Computed example of a mutant assay.
Amino acid sequence: MNNKLKVLISGTGFAGQGHAVAFRAAGAEVVGIVGRTPSVVSKVAKKMNIPYSGTDWQQALKDCQPDIVSIATPGGAHYEPIKQAIEFGCHVFSDKPLTDTGASSLELYKLSQNKKVKTAYASSFRYMPHIQHAKQLVANGAIGEPVEVECISHFNLERDIPFGWSHRKEDGGGRLNNNFTHMISIVTSVIGEKILSIIGEVRDDLGKAPIVEGVHNFKTRRDFIPKDLNDPSLIWGESNVEWSYTVLAQLESEFASKPVSVLFKHGGLNPKFQENHIVFYGTKGAIFIEGHYGMGPLYLYGESKTWEELPIPQDIADNQPKIAGDTERNWHYLVREFVKDINGEIVEHYQSFKEGSLYQQLVDLIRKNNNWTDVRHLQ
């Protein structure tokens, strides 16, 4: 008898294919995949040896009878498929953002609770080895009481990447949805999950992007940048989302007597001069991690009053899926935990629609951009 959990995938691009590989590695059976374009979904299903493919999500739920659905489309296309899957009684694994608004995300979280299905929210860069090491160091008192966190990143993204979902608020685009969700997850994993207060400001540095046909995979969109951007026949789409943000937050921590201050500074289109980084400061030291998502190396400033590079502890290294690519490895990690939980095994806390809905509500608050105080009247 085949007792494998059955998984239905929504999305045929980089994420959809990555999710399928991760669920198979976790011992589940990928029984179907759904996409928008018949020729594309059929091609992907054949390439990945997935027995069922189609473009009708509700029909696929009926035909495949999945235990789990995996949502791997842009955030603006999440709400209806997730709602239908929950109503169908499926557990749901969703990439970020959960939806395009805080209200609809909260609705899905409450629905999942009412239907008693398990959910996983893939702001999964918290599973980077150096981030897990920082979590271990902070918990062991290596920097004393944490007092402040600094997250600085500049991506220098090409301004002429073809117009698509990442340029549109209603489609789940914007740097808050696609960068801040990872960053807040990273910081809360180390400091503590409870967010006390938040303030922020956003900016659209882009304005417009060329509309180009044929872009189906997020990872290869750069290949479609027009060679002649001055071509008068080019059609342009207008961006309506942020490409840069600055956010301040306060977090509660079991390791600190006072709220921990956090700075998130991200420029999607700006070049970096020095390495992107994450720093955890404490009363007795600090942890510096190179890379915008904590790629490493990690340095500890402690009693020696010098920065010392530390290797990844063996227990953390041994627990990492043996997968190339940070994004893919983090999917494998979370999928593994999710499948274990569904199968009744004891696992550590992983993020669910509780965090997904909270983060989306935070994104809505930050985007209001109403935190400024007019000081022109002051003398």
Rank of each mutant, 00 (worst) to 15 (best):
G76T: 04
Q351F: 12
N156H: 07
K83T: 06
G296N: 11
E238V: 13
N114T: 13
F264L: 11
N230W: 02
S70G: 08
C151H: 12
I161E: 07
G75W: 02
D205H: 14
N178D: 07
F14G: 00
K258V: 12
E29Y: 09
L5A: 08
S239P: 11
E328C: 04
C90M: 04
Y245V: 08
A317W: 00
N230Y: 08
I86Y: 08
L263A: 13
P129G: 02
H292Y: 10
P162Y: 06
V190L: 06
K322G: 00
S10Q: 15
S104T: 15
F353M: 08
P146A: 08
I289Y: 03
K6M: 09
T373K: 15
G285P: 01
I152Q: 10
N240E: 10
V138L: 01
P311H: 04
I86V: 15
G268S: 10
P259Q: 11
A142E: 09
T306V: 14
P271G: 03
I323R: 11
D228Y: 00
G141F: 03
I68S: 05
T12W: 12
A45Q: 06
K46W: 05
D223P: 07
V44M: 02
L269D: 01
I198A: 09
G11T: 08
G141Q: 06
V215S: 03
